[in-house]
């Protein structure tokens, strides 16, 4: 067991205007990221996957609060560190890449200067050394003419280039963990593949572990070693990537798989999971997926299923986990 990050029983809540109770956005998530591996965190919008990563890095919005849990990183619990201690870790040991390369870069600061900022901040490099290092990493992430690009502003770069700049920023200090929050969602498919390949190459070179937050199962298949599926603030399934795609067990995961467009005979409709994500203030008592589950039984509505081990580290939060063989939809 050599995990770079171990999240245990993380609970995060949000205050909301006009309500007394706080909404629980993340409800007891356990997650472990092995050193140098890529872990996927999958789920639909609002399921708490981004909140999980923001809780760990102390970047929650003002109305958010970590209620309990721990996040062990290099033997320290990130959730109990001061803002100052966290700042020393952020960008240096843990860095993040965000979804929108268009808006993740400051429009009025040259991109090179933005990348170099982390080096100057954490390693105290002088301007010239930081620039040399930045140009080198920019070349490495496949930015042509890095010396010229260094002084350019974000609007002068294409979306793909901008995301490469973000990756350069994230990888500059060879962090132990890179949290990538939907890094390719805003990009063309062809650029997406390039960016994923780039991240994998850099990962191999630096031994960086990646937490890949995405709703795209294609990305998961491409890059992840292990996958956690989240639904309504809880982990509902965990498996290595092969097991997940071969024999996922939770009805929600199976629904996601079924909703992937495939080459099927003409006329078949694309499967979709009925209903919508439950309201944060009106969570079902039992299994949170029960109201949308086509296999839900009486018990599912009244009792919360535990995270069962199906063997080999394959975890599933369901009373009646299924194999892929009795899947009929899709």
């Amino acid at each position: 067991m050599d995990n770079i990050l171990e999240i245990k029983n993380l609970i995060t809540s949000f205050a909301s205007d006009g309500r007394k109770e706080r909404a629980i956005a993340v409800n007891g998530v356990d997650l472990a990221i092995p050193r140098g591996k890529t872990v996927g965190l999958v789920g639909e919008s609002g399921c708490g996957k981004s909140v999980t990563s923001l809780s760990v890095t102390g970047l929650l919005a003002e109305n958010g609060r970590v209620e309990s849990g721990e996040a062990l990183f290099q033997g320290r619990d990130l959730l109990r560190l001061s803002e100052k201690e966290l700042r020393a870790i952020r960008g240096n040991d843990i860095s993040m890449i965000f979804q929108e390369p268009m808006t993740s870069l400051n429009p009025v600061i040259p991109v090179g200067v933005q990348v170099a900022e982390a080096a100057r901040l954490h390693e105290g490099l002088d301007k010239a050394t930081a620039k040399a290092r930045t140009v080198e990493i920019m070349r490495k992430v496949g930015i042509p003419e890095p010396e010229r690009r260094y002084g350019q502003y974000p609007h002068q770069l294409s979306g793909g280039l901008r995301q490469r700049v973000m990756i350069a920023m994230g990888m500059l200090l060879k962090p132990d963990l890179l949290i990538a929050d939907e890094p390719t969602t805003a990009l063309d498919v062809s650029i997406e593949a390039q960016i994923l390949r780039l991240m994998r190459d850099l990962q191999r070179e630096n031994g960086t572990a990646i937490l890949m937050i995405t709703h795209n199962l294609g990305v998961v298949a491409e890059i992840c070693d292990e996958v956690y599926v989240m639904y309504a603030g809880e982990v509902v399934e965990r498996a290595d990537v092969f097991t997940l795609f071969k024999s996922c067990a939770h009805p929600y995961t199976r629904g996601l798989m079924g909703a992937l467009p495939r080459m099927t005979p003409k006329g078949q409709r694309l499967y979709n999971i009925r209903g919508t994500v439950p309201n944060l203030w009106a969570m079902p008592v039992g299994c949170r997926f029960a109201p949308r589950c086509e296999f839900a039984a009486e018990r599912c509505h009244g009792e919360k299923p535990p995270l069962l081990d199906l063997g080999g580290g394959h975890l599933c939060r369901c009373f009646a986990p299924r194999g892929l063989e009795d899947e009929h939809h899709g």
Binding site: R87, I89, G91, M96, T103, E117
Partner: peptide
Amino acid sequence: EKEFVEAARSMGVS
């Protein structure tokens, strides 16, 4: 509220 501010924070900028 812009992402670049969040990105800067995520890099440890004060």
